[in-house]
Design a protein around this nucleic acid. Structure first.
Lengths: 243, 243
DNA sequence: ACGTACGCCGTACAACGTACAGTGTCATGA
DNA sequence: TCATGACACTGTACGTTGTACGGCGTACGT
C-alpha cells in the first residue's frame, strides 16, 4: 500500500513523505500515473481510464499501478487536482487588476468553461476530496481574489463563487457531446414522426417552445445561447448585491 | 429484442405498439421493471441497479429483463422519465395562479429540489434521451407555463428555465451526501493537521474564507446557505429582464 | 391440430477493480 | 563485507458487471 491520499495530493511539497530509498528505483511515479491517466481521459473519456490500460501505456504490469495509487477512485481525485492546478492563475499583479468586478467574474467564468472543455471528464468526478489538494486550493484562492471587488463578506464570497462555478459547470455539461447522440441521430428519421404521433396536439406550449429552442440551438453556430443568457443572469444577480 | 426506446417511453399511450398476443403471458412488464429499478435506486443508489439484482427482486431470471428493456442505459432513461412524470404538476387552475412570477419561480425551484432529493440518482443520469418521454415533456410543459408571467419570448423562456433548473441541479448535487464522506471523516484526525502543515501560511485568503464557509455550513442546521443565496441571485438575475 | 411468435432461461464471455502471495533489487546496520 | 529487510514490481485469481446466443415451452391465430 502506497502513501495516503493526502500525501499523494501534496507529493510535490518538500514536506511530503517520499518513501525510503531502499529497494529498486521506481520506474514510474504517482505523478506519471496521474499524467498518463489525464492524457487517456482527454483522448478517450474517463471510461477509458482503466488500471490495465494505464499500466499498458506506462509499460508496467497491471498491479504495479497500485504501488503508486491506492485505488481508482483516489486516482480520479488526483487527476482532478492536477487539472485544477493547470487552470491559468489569471495574469494578475502586473498590468490590469481591473477593478471592474463584472469583467472579473466574466473572465473567471470563461476560464472555467475553458478548463471544462479541455477536460470534460472533470464533470464526471463527484468526489470532493480533491478540495484538499494543492491545485484545487490554489484555484480556490485566486478565484476568491477575483471576487474580492464585489466587496462581500467571507461567507457570501464563498457562496457567490460556488454560484458562478455551478453555472459554468452546468453549461459545460450541456455543451459536451452526449454519450448516445450518435444513436439518437441515427434513429431519428423513424423516431421523429413517431414522437409527433404520440404528442398529437398535447403540450402545445412545450412543442412550440421546444421547436423554437431547438432551432435557435442548431442556428448559425452560436456556441450556446444558454451561455450568454445565463452569464448575463449571473452577473445581474450578483449586481443586486451591490449598494 | 423488445420494442425501441421511443415506444417504451410511450408504452402507456394508446397508440404504442403492444406486441402480439402470442406466446405465454408476460410475468413482468417494462413498467414493472422500471418501477423496481426506481425502488432499488431510491433505497441503495443507482449503483445497486443491476440487471441481476433487478431480476432477483422481480422473481425472474437475469436475462428475462432484456425481454422488457433493451439495455441498462435505456433503463436509466426510462427511470428518469417516470421520475419526471411523478413530479407534482403544480396545483394550478383552481385557486391561485399567482401572477407573481417570483413566487412561481421559487415554487418551481423548490419542487425540483424536492424531486432531486427524493431521487438523488437523477443527478447521475447524463443521458438526454429522456427528453423524448411523456413524463419529461409534461414536466417541461408545465414548467414553461410557470415561467409565462415573465413575459419573455419562446427562446428566452427556454433559456430561463434551463438556467433555473441548472441551479437547482447543482444545489441538489451539493446537498447530497458525498460518496467517500465516511472515509474522509474517519481519517480527518490525521489528515487535518497534515494538511495544515502543507498549507503553512500559503493561500491565506482561501484558508480564511474556507474556514468561515465551513463553519457556516456546520452551523445551526440551516439546510444550505448556498441554496437561499443562489435562489435569491437567480431571482434577481431574472428580474433584470423585466421592463 | 398445427405452426409459430414470443416470454423465459442457462450458459458463457469479455472486461473491470483489486486482494494476495510471491520475486528480485538495492541501501543500509552489523 | 555481508546479511537484513524495505520496497518496486508481477502473475494469478476472485467476484462482479453487462449482455450475446441458443434453446425451450406456451398459447394464440389459422
Amino acid at each position: 500500500m502506497p502513501r495516503e491520499l493526502i500525501d499523494l495530493l501534496w507529493r510535490d511539497h518538500p514536506d511530503a513523505p517520499s518513501g525510503g530509498a531502499r529497494g529498486p528505483r521506481a520506474r514510474i511515479s504517482t505523478g506519471s500515473v496521474v499524467e498518463a491517466a489525464i492524457r487517456l481521459a482527454d483522448a478517450d473519456g474517463l471510461g477509458a481510464v482503466t488500471i490495465r490500460r494505464l499500466a499498458a501505456d506506462l509499460g508496467v504490469s497491471t498491479m504495479s499501478i497500485y504501488t503508486h495509487v491506492n485505488t481508482r477512485d483516489d486516482l480520479l481525485v488526483l487527476m482532478a487536482d492536477v487539472a485544477h492546478g493547470s487552470a491559468a492563475p489569471a495574469p494578475e499583479g502586473g498590468a490590469s487588476p481591473s477593478a471592474d468586478w463584472r469583467e472579473q467574474v466574466r473572465l473567471l467564468a470563461e476560464a472555467n468553461l475553458d478548463l471544462l472543455r479541455r477536460h470534460p471528464w472533470l464533470l464526471e468526478i463527484a468526489d470532493d476530496r480533491s478540495a484538499l489538494g494543492p491545485g484545487t486550493i490554489a484555484k480556490y484562492d485566486h478565484e476568491l481574489a477575483a471576487l474580492a471587488p464585489l466587496g462581500l463578506d467571507d461567507v457570501a464570497t464563498d457562496a457567490a463563487l460556488t454560484f458562478v462555478l455551478d453555472f459554468v459547470r452546468a453549461s459545460a455539461r450541456a455543451l459536451r457531446p452526449q454519450p448516445h447522440a450518435g444513436e439518437l441521430a441515427a434513429s431519428w428519421p423513424q423516431w421523429g414522426p413517431r414522437l409527433a404521433g404520440y404528442l398529437g396536439d398535447d403540450f402545445p406550449l412545450a412543442q412550440r417552445v421546444g421547436a423554437a429552442a431547438g432551432e435557435a440551438m442548431g442556428g448559425v453556430g452560436e456556441p450556446s445561447l444558454a451561455w450568454s443568457f445565463g452569464l448575463a443572469r449571473v452577473l445581474d444577480g450578483l449586481a443586486a448585491l451591490r449598494p
